[in-house]
Design a protein around this nucleic acid. Structure first.
Lengths: 110, 110
DNA sequence: TTAAATACCTCGTTATTCTATATATTTTTA
DNA sequence: TAAAAATATATAGAATAACGAGGTATTTAA
């Protein structure tokens, strides 16, 4: 597990990317997917995920559909067109940031 | 300029790396070097830098020497041996984190 | 001589993730 | 079949770290 501060600012981009790739996803599914894709290195907590999803919905990046599974209600989230645009932006920003940090941290002195 | 949240958790690693490469550095010098190395994309603010340096000193990662430049006092910071060890750790962690995030954000669906 | 750059500092704000707690259903295991 | 684990959602408050805004002062360039 990484220092939890490192994840800050990356969560929205990660969620947008997963929804773009997988179509509709529900919350618990997102945590499992992130865990699996990161080799158990990013363990997304409920206290992080659900508030993030609610905020993204308020901002119009994602929308939700409910499904009844027996007595349980499942919330399926999916990208809006705005969400898709923001996903592209965030993806670029994150890759650019990674390149910049990488350049600094792996810079070799001569 | 990146979303300021992205920088979180990376600042200590960046400072440790710069000090490891350049030996003694004073605060203002660090901000300029980060600016230069990042092509003006990371503009480290005084409100971030100085508290960070003071904290790192409290934790024994860096130590300080003062120099009198005329009437001005300049604080030169340098790595302690503990700081060097933590630098190695943070460097690995940050590279690992970057790889993980990169894998997720640039994952191609098939 | 005035503005910009250099050089340091701190307080309070903001943003975001996490911990802890809560509730409840479904599936697996002993 | 009872208990435990996994599934599924939610929120309140704590923690952390970077920033904005403010302050002080010297040196250099226009």
């Amino acid at each position: 597990m990484y220092s939890k501060e490192l994840l800050k600012g990356t969560l929205t981009a990660i969620i947008l990317k997963l929804l773009a790739d997988n179509g509709k996803m529900y919350g618990y599914r997102i945590t499992q997917k992130v865990k699996q894709m990161s080799d158990n290195k990013i363990l997304l907590k409920e206290g992080s995920l659900y508030p993030a999803l609610h905020k993204m919905r308020e901002e119009g990046l994602i929308d939700v559909e409910t499904e009844n599974i027996g007595k349980r209600i499942r919330h399926h989230y999916f990208l809006t067109s705005k969400g898709f645009l923001i996903k592209e932006e965030k993806e670029k920003e994150l890759n650019d940031f990674i390149n910049t940090i990488s350049k600094i941290i792996n810079h070799e002195t001569n």
